[in-house]
């Protein structure tokens, strides 16, 4: 049970990273980005490209930091893939979402466009990498290490947890202590007042996509390190991502963090009682529960 909880925390932190980006987009750009799961997939696959193709070409050796499953290639690939995902997010905004925004389209139209973008991205992944599942490292035995209290974790998972914590802390510092971060929070609160205060809301939008995209990319890579890559992985993330965002309160990054962890833990612990195939249904059940009990989420957010 404790072991499941630990797995839940690892999985939950991946969902949380994605959910934080999603909730920022919700709060500042005012629509549900149904392509967010596929942005996570983009991160994972671009990292695969670097690890399997680009970096070997550049002569970066294949090493492994025992007992982890990865080495220098992944270390270099992670920031590059995050940047690539952020760049894609910005390009998508310029090409699709910003024109709709300037046209004052309704949030539903933006969400529908995001749905189309999601399928676009997924089909590109199918074309470039094919339908079969892949891993960063084939045929690796993932040997767990033992922590006190008889907890079993894989070494990769510890790194994922640490990196997630690092990213979340960096985001916290940015949002709380920097002028731009405060401007972002202000724009999420009251975009009209922000504009009157002289804040360039278009630049804030750009920043939101950069951060959201980068975090989504990281989340996808972390997931794929611990599990595998499939072209359909993006769709599978949507339910837990949105459930986490709603659980925490739309617009609240800290709510998304809490929501992600809760969803992750509950999903994993549920496998002790019911068929693991039902994990997405568990996220859905949690979502329904929150909608019944407290629709505005744990941290209130905006109604």
């Amino acid at each position: 049970m404790l072991e499941l909880t630990v797995y839940g925390i690892v999985y939950g932190s991946v969902i949380a990273l994605g959910a934080i980006g999603l909730t920022l987009i919700y709060g500042i750009l005012r629509f549900g980005n149904f392509a967010h799961g596929d942005l996570m997939a983009v991160g994972a696959y671009v990292a695969l490209f670097f690890v399997a193709v680009a970096l070997p070409l550049l002569g970066i050796p294949e090493t492994r930091f025992e007992p982890l499953s990865f080495g220098w290639r992944m270390v270099i690939a992670i920031p590059l893939a995050m940047a690539a995902t952020a760049l894609l997010a910005v390009v998508l905004d310029r090409a699709v979402y910003r024109p709709l925004r300037h046209r004052k389209s309704s949030p539903v139209m933006l969400s529908m466009a995001a749905l189309g973008v999601a399928f676009l991205i997924r089909s590109l992944i199918y074309i470039l990498w094919g339908p079969d599942p892949t891993r960063y490292v084939e045929g690796l035995l993932r040997i767990p290490i033992y922590l006190p209290f008889d907890i079993k974790v894989r070494p990769d998972q510890v790194v994922i947890l640490v990196l997630t914590l690092l990213l979340v802390m960096m985001l916290y510092l940015f949002l709380q202590k920097t002028r731009l971060g405060k401007a972002m929070r202000a724009t999420a609160d009251n975009p009209d007042l922000a504009r009157i205060s002289g804040i360039n809301t278009e630049r804030i939008a750009l920043l939101t996509w950069v951060i959201g995209g980068a975090l989504a990319g990281a989340a996808g890579i972390f997931w794929a390190i611990d599990s595998q890559l499939t072209p359909e992985m993006g769709w599978g993330f949507l339910l837990p991502l949105f459930a986490a965002v709603i659980l925490g309160g739309i617009g609240s990054p800290y709510g998304a963090l809490a929501g992600g962890l809760i969803i992750g833990i509950v999903q994993q612990v549920s496998t002790a009682f019911i068929n693991p195939a039902y994990k997405p249904a568990v996220a859905f059940a949690l979502l329904i529960l929150i909608l019944l009990v407290r629709p505005q989420g744990i941290f209130g957010g905006r109604s």
């Binding site: 002028r179 405060k182 401007a183 929070r185 202000a186 009251n190 007042l193 922000a194 205060s197 804040i199």
Partner: peptide, 20 residues
Amino acid sequence: TENVFPSLTVQENFEMGAFI
């Protein structure tokens, strides 16, 4: 109405006022 940033502190609201 809607003349403040509710999730920001008083200090931060003033900082936003001075943004430019």
